[in-house]
Design a binder for these strands. Structure first.
Lengths: 248, 248
DNA sequence: CGGGGTCCTGCGTGTTTGTGCATCATTAAT
DNA sequence: ATTAATGATGCACAAACACGCAGGACCCCG
């Protein structure tokens, strides 16, 4: 194996997954850690990646942290991190789209071993970096607004799935009216996702609490977990304390 | 053994395997290391390969994952623009993934009215901006390497599709060996895509011409359009002038 | 025929580069 | 604070390299 080939291999991994662990590279390339470290060092000097303890990261990925929208972003990261505690090894998880879920896809533990079904291309792309996660993208018509697949074909496929946990972002949630939405197709889609899972969790930034829209997706009783960026004890959430609903 | 013969031999090896070790060449050609070194040096100066410590690598192989390659980017835009001329209103188009196709998705005419089936989430996302284009993302297992959906489920769905035009990027194309690839699953996928379309077009940056890989996808006869960034009349393309193949 | 030129090749020398190992320092995780 | 993982440094050895030189093949031309 030529040095240049190793370098190319590393860059391919970086472009694909935004990161490499140097322990992985040792195995994959069959060379000593020293060699890997020197390779990464050299690539870092050429500005092709940025080296960190234990591996290296893509430069672009690094800079993607300086989002101007730090505020909402923080909340979503917080929500995503809380949500990871619901996902255990071996689970089959079904997810929708939306920024909260996409953030979740970035925050999962490194060697999670699970199966994800998703209707969101963005989520699929995000999940691709986990070596032990099997990703199935559910195909169908692609919605220009919601950026997820939807329609009869998707619903058919969902009927064949039996997931352990369904995770959805939400447009609106309300103590009485439950989960609501404005788009009929997306509404149908979310209902089908509920039906295909044993349990359901809603990722919900606090702005969307106490809002009610035209179309009902599910009532609070059908939801098992509500994950917000707020403290689970906070008064804003009092109205949601239902027997079956766990708040975190 | 004449110098020219050695050079040809080396280039054949490079095209076949994307790499040569100079220790191998010493054995195979029965000459001294110095001679090999001088040969490789000469070929490198002619731009036919790129020499590295211990051997040499194919130029195209190099740049295939080097996204700092500005030329390649330009070329892909050029290819994408040429390709748009093949897509007419009302058509049903089936596309693969890869940077060329993703670029194509950005370059379509604004109010194109067509239906696109694709296995690439990136392409679906790119196509979402065209109001009159219906986008269907074909679902299935998501490949971490190729970033497209693949596998039996995808192939089943492809069998139900009858598209007017199939557009694929390519890993390698060769006058005799046709379209080839290295990954078996992707190979199967591409074959299925050919079978689901009346016509097929290959988007191919010139670096990937005259290269042959392990697995055959299709021969030139099965391809209807070859789109490169080169002038259709350029001598590099002479070998591809087959009755059924339109070059643009 | 034979000298002088060029080109190609292989060998010997010394130099540079790449790699792995041992040791010790540093960092992250609990 | 303790422990395990990771990193840095220096060293040794082998592989790859550059360079100069010499012998051989070939050609041109007198």
């Amino acid at each position: 194996m030529l040095k240049k080939e190793r370098h190319d291999f590393v860059m391919r991994q970086i472009n694909l997954h935004n990161r490499v662990l140097n322990s992985d590279l040792v195995q994959l390339l069959n060379v000593s850690e020293d060699t890997i470290r020197r390779d990464l060092q050299e690539l870092a000097e050429n500005g092709q990646l940025s080296k960190v303890h234990g591996g290296a990261l893509s430069k672009s990925y690094q800079s993607s942290f300086d989002d101007s929208d730090v505020y909402a972003k923080d909340a979503k990261v917080c929500i995503a991190k809380k949500t990871t505690s619901l996902i255990k090894d071996g689970m089959v998880v079904l997810t929708g789209g939306g920024t909260s879920i996409i953030e979740l896809a970035k925050q999962l533990p490194e060697n999670l071993n699970a199966t994800f079904f998703t209707v969101s291309p963005f989520v699929a792309i995000g999940l691709a970096k986990y070596a032990k996660v099997e990703v199935i993208l559910i195909g169908g018509l692609f919605s220009k607004n919601s950026q997820v697949t939807y329609g009869g074909h998707v619903i058919n496929q969902l009927s064949e799935i039996n997931a352990d946990l369904c995770l959805l972002g939400t447009s609106a949630i309300h103590p009485q009216n439950g989960l609501t939405d404005t788009d009929w197709e997306i509404n149908q889609l979310k209902k089908a996702m509920f039906n295909s899972s044993k349990k359901a969790g809603i990722l919900c930034i606090s702005e969307k609490l106490d809002i009610s829209l035209r179309l009902k997706v599910a009532s609070l009783e059908n939801i098992d977990y509500l994950i917000t960026e707020l403290d689970p004890q906070s008064p804003e959430l009092n109205a949601y304390r239902v027997k079956t609903l766990q708040i975190l």
